[in-house]
Design a protein around this nucleic acid. Structure first.
Lengths: 149, 149
DNA sequence: ATAAAAGAGGACATGGTTGTCCGGTTTTGG
DNA sequence: CCAAAACCGGACAACCATGTCCTCTTTTAT
């Protein structure tokens, strides 16, 4: 239902939020979030293009959130990586209705809207500061920051 | 986001609802709903297994809704054909939290729940008797019933 | 200047979804 | 009983999502 890509992107973003704007390499993010490194590298690209994260190449490079977690809604991450396709016209393609959705597809679009709404309702900051005592992304052990140097 | 399979199943069910419990062959349903015949045949099988529709083989056979549209929620069709996988435990697989969902996945599951809720909120009958003047499944022309005989 | 670190991007493998096809089985009408 | 109608089920093709790998480019430290 939700793609792996979305899952991975959200894990990465949550992790980057948890280190408070600091920069982390793909390897660090992958290790922390249990995502295949090589694939995560691909997932990060649309996040960069979508200005969710900023990337820096070269030594001491990596990825960092480009906005504060308070201003980053989960929906933005989803849309950057695997956009929710709202139904804007009848997939049957008959022009007779003009732009009006038929009842069935109106309902389907409502369902998509509900999901979109759920994603729009939460910021990354809220995920981090959940009222519960649990740690985001389960309690994967604190990941060492840059150990070199 | 929503699979083709779900889309097709819902079209088929809506069509069968629109003919008031009468039986229709795969070919008739496919023509009415603009779905590839051979694939629709596959989609119908889980609907049969899920008791959404009943099938009859042989001459004058076909598919018919096994319940009245008032009692058929869209969600049931979705679940029969391509079940919404709710998130019941952290996909990171760490046992430390026990059965508790981490904040991120709680939110994701909320989104899935919202979608599930939207599907559960509507019956096929409601799709057919939409307050708007539009015809379900767009206005594909009335499909002739069994012309033989 | 050079070497190492790290992201960017493309080529390729794998698996699941979508879609086609065909033979088998059940049912009905004559 | 026989033939036609129709669903059942499995084999196979095409395509996209997922995942791996390798090379290129950028950047920094020495």
């Amino acid at each position: 239902m939700l793609s792996q890509t979305v899952e991975y992107a959200l894990r990465a973003a949550t992790y980057l939020a948890s280190v408070e704007g600091e920069s982390r390499t793909v390897d660090q993010i992958a290790a922390a979030t249990r995502v295949p490194v090589a694939y995560l590298a691909k997932v990060m690209r649309p996040l960069v293009r979508g200005k969710i994260v900023a990337s820096r190449r070269g030594v001491r490079g990596g990825f960092a959130l480009s906005r504060s977690p308070e201003r980053l809604r989960i929906l933005e991450i989803v849309q950057a990586v695997d956009p929710i396709q709202r139904i804007t016209h009848c997939p049957l393609g008959l022009a007779a209705h003009g732009k009006r959705l038929c009842p069935l597809h109106k309902r389907l679009d409502n369902a998509l809207a509900a999901m979109e709404e759920a994603f729009a309702a939460t910021t990354l900051a809220e995920v981090l500061s959940e009222p519960t005592r649990s740690v985001p992304l389960c309690d994967f052990p604190a990941v060492p920051a840059c150990r070199r140097h």
